[in-house]
Amino acid sequence: MATPPGASAFAELLRDEGVTVVEVGDWEHHNRNSRGPWGPVHGVMIHHTVTFGTDRTVQICRTGHASLPGPLCHGVIAKDGRVHLVGYGRANHAGLGDDDVLRAVIDERPLPADNEATTDGNRHFYGFECENLGNGSDPWPAAQLAAIEKVSAAICRHHGWSARSVIGHLEWQPGKVDPRGFGMGYMRDRVAKRLGSSAPGPSLPAPRPPEVSLSKVIKAAKTDPARSGSPVSYRGVAVVETALVDAGLLAKARSDGHWGTTTLTAYAKWQRSCGYSGTDADGIPGPNTLRRLGAKYGFQVDA
């Protein structure tokens, strides 16, 4: 049986692991304890949010919505690796899941397939929501993956758990797919190494960053649909647009894969933030600015 530490101690154990912690409002007292117990705790559960923009994501996870009041997790792990603490205690993040999975977590053995939704997960798991669209192409920056590793290891270290106590929502509740974009086996390997122990099972490959063709993005950006009649469509445009959304320069990524005027304006802002001006900040990607955007927001540039 594991009892959660106090809120202040929880924040400190994350900081001791090297996590950059952002305390949001009265997070220490924001919980759903009036609706049921929290504890004993047995593991850490990782989710993705299906949202974009850190401020918006943190607000949603803190307050929830009409059908699912907040907090929706204990911490929000942003693209830049900062962990925003939004609640402490019972949180609406895990829902009902498989009792056989819970038993495997407690026993620290390989997880069975989740085929039931009968057991209260909000009671037994710490929950972390990770800022990601969950579409399989939204990048997972290195700083964000490192933060997931650190918060998981910090909690496991505190309770004396192994990396087998870290699971994904998709491993708990039938029908869930989160986190999408990296394997939980891969993350448990990272946590195990951080804890100084051997990997808990077969190692899975690291998530492969999306690749963006510089020449194709330039072609799409230079095509004026008003003049040509039809824009150049390229799937990599959505990857770049998602990075611009994460940078706070674009409201949302388009779905049609062409470089519209709003994307042109947003990319020009990125170029100016990189020190360019005049015709060098015209919204048409160049190799330097595109590689810098990819390095920060998790995609590779293929020249």
Score class of each variant (00 low, 15 high):
G160V: 06
S162N: 07
A163M: 08
R164L: 07
V166K: 00
V166R: 01
I167R: 00
G168W: 10
L170H: 08
W172E: 07
G175K: 05
G175I: 12
V177A: 11
D178Q: 10
G181A: 05
G181K: 04
G181Y: 00
F182S: 07
F182T: 02
Y186W: 14
R190E: 05
R190M: 06
K193L: 13
K193E: 04
S197D: 07
S197M: 11
A199P: 00
P200C: 06
P202V: 07
P202K: 15
S203Y: 04
P205G: 04
P205A: 03
A206Y: 03
P207K: 08
P207L: 04
R208Q: 12
P209F: 02
P209I: 14
P210A: 05
E211I: 13
L214E: 03
S215C: 07
S215A: 10
V217H: 02
I218P: 06
A221G: 05
A221L: 10
K222H: 04
T223E: 14
D224M: 08
P225L: 15
P225H: 11
A226R: 15
A226W: 14
S228Y: 04
P231F: 10
Y234N: 03
R235Y: 09
A238C: 13
A238D: 03
V239Q: 05
V239F: 08
V239M: 08
V240E: 06
V240T: 01
T242D: 07
A243H: 03
A243F: 00
A243E: 00
L244I: 08
D246Q: 06
D246M: 01
A247Q: 07
G248K: 00
L249Q: 03
A251L: 14
A251M: 10
K252R: 13
A253V: 05
A253R: 06
R254T: 12
S255T: 07
G257F: 13
H258Y: 15
H258S: 12
H258F: 15
T261W: 02
T261I: 14
T261Y: 07
T263W: 00
L264C: 11
L264R: 15
T265K: 15
A266E: 01
A266Q: 04
Y267P: 05
A268H: 11
A268V: 14
K269A: 08
W270T: 03
S273P: 02
S273F: 10
S273Y: 08
C274I: 04
G275F: 02
G275W: 06
G275H: 02
Y276I: 09
T279Q: 15
T279E: 12
T279F: 15
A281P: 05
A281V: 11
D282P: 02
G286D: 12
N288W: 05
N288L: 09
T289S: 14
L290Q: 10
G294V: 00
G294Q: 00
G294T: 00
A295N: 11
Y297P: 01
Y297I: 03
G298L: 02
F299S: 08
Q300S: 14
Q300V: 14
